[in-house]
Write a protein that binds this DNA or RNA. Sequence first.
DNA 1: GTCTATATAGTGATAGAC
DNA 2: GTCTATCACTATATAGAC
Lengths: 199, 199
Amino acid sequence: MTSPRRTGSENSKTRLRLLDITERLMLDEGYAAVGVRRVAREADVAPALVLYYFRTLDDLFLAVLRRRMGEELERQARVLDSPQPLRALWQLTNHPGHALSTEFIGLANHRKAIRAELAAHAERYREAQLQTLTRNLTEAGLQLPLGMTPAVLLVLSTALTRVLVLEDDMGVSAGHAETLAFVEQLLQRYEGPARAPER
Amino acid sequence: MTSPRRTGSENSKTRLRLLDITERLMLDEGYAAVGVRRVAREADVAPALVLYYFRTLDDLFLAVLRRRMGEELERQARVLDSPQPLRALWQLTNHPGHALSTEFIGLANHRKAIRAELAAHAERYREAQLQTLTRNLTEAGLQLPLGMTPAVLLVLSTALTRVLVLEDDMGVSAGHAETLAFVEQLLQRYEGPARAPER
DNA sequence: GTCTATATAGTGATAGAC
DNA sequence: GTCTATCACTATATAGAC
């Protein structure tokens, strides 16, 4: 009863190249630049070959999402595991990996397969961050203000960085400098100056 | 040297209907649902008529943007002009008008004409909010924490509400309840319980 | 594993009749 | 002011040869 169409193996070199190209296209030109023909052209193969490895375009996007998000989850946990957990949290979302998330959020508007996968990942992601953050806040002996929990801190930091980047990309900057200064002042008060990571 | 193509008048009833339909489509199904044929079908006219009133699809989107954003600017200034400026600010971005902004932010990813117009509007918008907010904070005699300026408050509130709504729509809710409780607690501390608007 | 060729369906936009 | 008809593309996806 399964479809007669064939599919390429998971560890093909061509398959990996197609994933790389798709990811690069999303970062450089946005997800809208990704299409069967375009990816094929960049890889110097025939369009049909793309659909040999990924039966639909959604499958291609999902494969990129799964690969990169897996890596990001590890990386972020590592960065967040710092003796200055607040500074780590604040710097977390400035990494280039974050730009890809932004593209997927946009994609999720149009493609519900992406939406479902991304939502599931976002929850796992936040949960993992929360555990690391909570542990390191305790270890650092940091006293949060009344009512402020690690989860609140996480949502606030995520929201702020995401919107600042979004607005920056659009060319909107009103209030940004003051906000960054305010955050830096808070970091100073709670954690003192930035220290080089221990090793 | 100008194009020979004709264009409908600004106050045509049909033109207004097309704007209404486009706006409704954006809210109900997202901007991707808007196209020449779809809008025409909903209006029960021929596709060519849509392009008679709006020479390109960008023009259609821009017309919706200008109309609605003008109204929003007034409305928001009015709501923000409250004896409880912090509560007003917090409730500001929960209105349905906000959903349309979200769609335009998405559109701005693909269409640079929209991007430019939206960015310009966003700056004006924030500037206007900032003036009203600053004045009402002073009048209410509110003392902000060290380093926290009205502009910072505005950016923070905007960022938080925008991301909460975005995540909600996606089905991500981790940390939301705690964050809302934290904000409500802050509002209580600085402005006491919500009062009915004076009249 | 990779290709050519094609099916099928969508799009924005235009010319010109009524 | 509104229509029909059409141009010139774009797109994803499939069948089957090599």
